[in-house]
Measured scan of single mutants.
Amino acid sequence: AVSDRLIGRKGVVMEAISPQNSALVKVDGETWRATSGTVLDVGEEVSVKAIEGVKLVVEKLE
Rank of each mutant, 00 (worst) to 15 (best):
G11M: 02
E30M: 07
V39N: 12
D4Q: 12
E52K: 08
I51S: 02
G43M: 03
V42N: 02
G43Q: 03
R9E: 05
R5E: 07
V57K: 04
D4Y: 00
T35R: 05
I17P: 13
E62H: 11
A1S: 12
K55D: 09
V13I: 07
R33K: 11
K55Y: 15
A23C: 13
W32N: 08
G8F: 00
T38I: 08
E30R: 06
A1L: 11
R5W: 08
I7P: 03
I17W: 15
E52N: 11
V12L: 07
D28N: 07
E62N: 12
G8M: 00
E30H: 07
A34E: 08
V39L: 11
E15M: 07
N21P: 04
L24P: 04
G11D: 02
G43Y: 04
R33M: 15
P19K: 10
P19F: 10
V13Q: 01
G29M: 03
V27A: 01
E30N: 06
G8S: 03
A1V: 12
V2W: 10
L24I: 10
K10V: 13
E52F: 09
V25W: 00
E52W: 09
S18C: 11
V48G: 01
S22K: 06
A23D: 02
V42G: 04
N21S: 11
Q20E: 12
G53W: 00
E62A: 12
P19H: 12
D41A: 14
V13S: 02
L56K: 03
W32F: 14
K26V: 12
S3W: 07
G29L: 05
A23H: 07
K55M: 15
I51E: 01
S36N: 04
G43H: 03
V42P: 08
L24T: 08
V39K: 12
G29Y: 03
V57I: 12
G53Q: 03
D28F: 03
V57G: 02
A23P: 07
V46M: 01
A50V: 04
I7E: 03
G43E: 02
T31W: 14
G8I: 00
D28Q: 04
A16W: 15
G29D: 11
K49F: 04
R9C: 11
V13Y: 03
G53L: 04
L24S: 06
A16D: 05
W32Y: 15
A16L: 14
V25E: 03
A1I: 12
V54G: 15
D4W: 00
G29F: 02
V25K: 02
N21F: 11
T31Q: 11
S47G: 06
S22A: 11
S22T: 12
V39W: 14
V39C: 13
A16I: 15
G37H: 13
V27N: 01
I51M: 06
V13N: 02
E59C: 06
G11V: 03
K60G: 05
G29H: 04
V46I: 11
A50Q: 05
E62M: 11
E52T: 08
L24F: 08
A34F: 04
K26H: 08
A50I: 04
L24W: 11
E15S: 09
A23I: 15
L6T: 03
G29R: 01
V54W: 11
E59V: 10
V48Q: 01
V39G: 08
V58T: 03
I51Y: 05
